[in-house]
Design a binder for these strands. Structure first.
Lengths: 347, 347
DNA sequence: TTGTAGGCGTTATCAG
DNA sequence: CTGATAACGCCTACAA
């Protein structure tokens, strides 16, 4: 199981290294007879180019760009910066450069503007959150024209558009939430709380709700009653009022499933009255963690934004450097987080 | 933020590349004055050697050996083979060769024999499961003498002996189990079932029990009653009898915490009588998964043997190839697995 | 169409 | 003690 080099092949085929290289890369300008000799050898042995040597010479710096919502406005995105730094560190010797660009997730125009701006920096690849489907598709099309590779994470986009999605199965994550609720409650009335911030794509939350309901439907029981409510969160006061009036209308509710990372605002609203309501939500943002540890939140499902970025960038780097294939879809496991295992997830 | 090379440093210091190399590698044979000039430059800039070039030159094949229990006898170890293949694939171009060696986990002598055998193959590093502390230490000492790097996974070993442990915080994992039990039961009588197979090191299971009990102690409540039992599993018949007689003596038990991967034998024993006992256990072995999906097991904690091997080998490979530091301890998150998220963990 | 020469950054060797 | 030089495997350019 010898490791063959171009030199070896050249020797075996009785030609020069240059000719072998031309055959390997199909650059043409090779006589039939030489081509035959070389391909014969190539079929006999298993040649794999040494990716290290390739890179040493090329000496090109690959530019990767990450486009994601501003973590200042939604701390869900905060851990992503860490992932960017880690990947940058890991691959900087190999000639990988990563730049981060943020947009205001409440403004479609901000996304579009930022993305167009990124394209002008001529990166080799873009890793982005396609929060706004229509605009994202526009950007992807532009990237294709400019020969920029695109990966998306966190939010799904038409497979015609992305070569590579990294995220979670949202439907299934709804089912996980349902299962947890079931384990804790055994029976009762459950409220599904969507906290829309306009910008969030509706499909995102709907998938979770569908999964959640499908679990209880498949139980085939009358033990549960499920109601959905859409709320807005602009000011805490009006939010609290809306939520509490929802609870007044549904006084038996003993479980709430919060479909985005804002479980903590529900906890804070509930503080205004004594209650023993189980809460299942999403994401390890600071306030959620605090309430989880205090026992106010029962379970959180971890959407792992950091790992998503880490994986997405690693794939791109290894694609450029080592010709690795990028899987078209990577669904990360749905981690269930409680007060007792949360620390292990905060790296 | 320029990338400096040895050539650059040589130029800046007004010496030759050779001298810089000698300073960098502390080979001596450098005049005080040259040493000073070079170190001065080195302090001013941030030089990081290019691992690619180094590897290209060295062109050595690094041999890694993995020593672990036979998966034929305990399927817990099955996924490890997959990890070995993956890492091998990923790094084979870079000159990494991995060999797997298994031992019979029920025989101390088998471990010792296998390990000694491995040492004669002169690997550059060994990744092993130090199931038997005393013998493992002996092996580590031998490795040190032979300049073989050692990493351990799954089971902890004295930090004097290993440079590198990959596994989980067992105490905390006991607490996680307790938390889950608490969520499901609210109150009641709980049995902790240790299924010793002699070979398993007692400390392993004791840590889990300690964590489990500590959680309930910190609740400061009288709602729970906890009893421990040690069982042997040689034949299912005698095991079932022992377990059932334990239940007869403790008729109120409504939760069982199984501290190793054999939850399924408990499920099978319980089948002999109608019962509604919550079960929390460990590990995604085939039968456990089946019972989890059928609702016979409530929660499993995933000890991730595959990831442990994957991480352990990756670290070693990157240590040799790219001079990466190996963290002295990597504690993997404690994944909570239910019927709804189990598929995501079976890669 | 082909072969050869040179260079990427590092290391090892050898002559000075 | 030091500096020049060759080599690792691949790719590009240029000369034949």
């Amino acid at each position: 199981m010898k490791k063959y080099t171009i030199k070896d092949i050249a020797q075996l085929a009785g030609v020069s290294k240059g000719t072998v290289d031309r055959v390997l890369h199909k650059r043409g300008k090779v006589s039939e007879i030489a081509l035959e000799k070389v391909t014969k050898i190539l079929n006999e042995i298993e040649y794999k180019p040494n990716p290290i040597a390739k890179n040493l010479k090329i000496n090109k710096i690959y530019k990767l760009a990450v486009i994601l919502p501003d973590a200042q406005k939604d701390s869900y995105w905060e851990p992503c910066s860490g992932a960017i730094k880690e990947v940058e560190n890991e691959f900087q010797h190999f000639g990988i450069e990563i730049n981060k660009f943020v947009f205001d997730a409440s403004e479609t125009s901000s996304f579009l503007e930022t993305s167009l701006n990124v394209i002008t920096t001529k990166p080799d690849a873009i890793l982005m959150v396609p929060l706004f489907q229509k605009e994202a598709k526009e950007i992807v099309t532009k990237c294709n024209i400019n020969n920029i590779k695109v990966s998306v994470f966190n939010n799904y986009i038409d497979s015609n558009y992305s070569n590579n999605f990294i995220g979670q199965d949202l439907y299934q994550s709804g089912r996980v939430a349902a299962k947890l609720m079931d384990m804790v409650l055994k029976k009762g009335t459950i409220g599904i709380v969507h906290i829309d911030e306009d910008y969030q794509n509706a499909t995102h939350l709907q998938e979770k709700e569908k999964g959640f309901r499908s679990y209880f439907n498949s139980l085939n029981t009358l033990d549960y009653d499920i109601t959905t409510i859409h709320l807005n969160y602009k000011k805490s006061e009006s939010f609290n009022n809306s939520l509490l009036s929802f609870l007044d209308k549904n006084p038996n509710i003993n479980g709430i499933f919060v479909t985005i990372s804002k479980s903590y605002v529900v906890v804070e609203a509930l503080k205004e009255r004594a209650s023993d309501i189980a809460i299942v939500g999403y994401d390890l943002v600071k306030k959620n963690i605090d309430y989880l540890k205090q026992g106010e939140i029962d379970f959180l499902i971890h959407q792992k934004p950091k790992q998503q970025v880490y994986m997405g960038l690693s794939y791109l780097a290894e694609y450029f450097l080592f010709d690795k294939e990028i899987p078209s879809q990577l669904l990360l496991p749905l981690d269930i987080v409680t007060s007792e295992n949360v620390d292990g997830y905060l790296m």
